[in-house]
């Protein structure tokens, strides 16, 4: 199918600033109690450059664009029928508040199951910081349930 043209073609890089206030907001939203995730002074006292981004935060940063569903729409997926089925992170270096992270996403696979009832998309993203270090590589699988 024509959608296969998007597979294994890295999308243009997305550059995102890691904001102090948004990390504080995230910590509040998930009920975080460890201050290295919301208090810059205490994070620095604990030896961190700034507030530490929690383990799943790269996905949140990757959504910090006008339309985070642009790539799934490109594949003709109905976002209202979208479910997240798998998420995997490999970690190489921490992400901190005030960092600038560059994301490069690649669709690895796009396939259907159940005679077209389920449409899957697998995407891998690399996130590098302002020093060019790979911070994390993460992979997500989403499925659209087609009635």
């Amino acid at each position: 199918m024509s959608d296969q043209q998007y597979i294994n073609q890295p999308f243009p890089p997305l550059v995102v600033d890691v904001e102090v206030w948004q990390l504080k907001f995230f910590a509040k939203a998930v009920g975080e109690t460890d201050p290295i995730y919301f208090d810059e002074e205490l994070a620095q006292q604990a030896g961190h450059r700034s507030i530490l981004a929690p383990p799943t935060y790269a996905v949140t940063l990757g959504c910090a664009v006008p339309d985070p569903f642009e790539r799934v729409r490109l594949l003709g997926i109905d976002v209202t029928k979208l479910l997240h089925t798998n998420q995997y992170f490999e970690y190489f270096a921490p992400i901190y508040a005030r960092d600038q992270i560059t994301f490069v996403a690649t669709i690895l696979d796009f396939y259907e199951k159940g005679r077209g009832k389920f449409q899957f998309m697998v995407e891998e993203t690399e996130a590098r910081n302002q020093f060019g270090e790979l911070t994390t590589r993460f992979k997500q699988t989403v499925v659209e349930r087609r009635e």
Partner: peptide, 19 residues
Amino acid sequence: QLLTNWVPQSAIVSFGVKF
């Protein structure tokens, strides 16, 4: 949070889930 309550986040090599 379960993991980072237990070990420093820098100890996590990989973390994957199935919803």
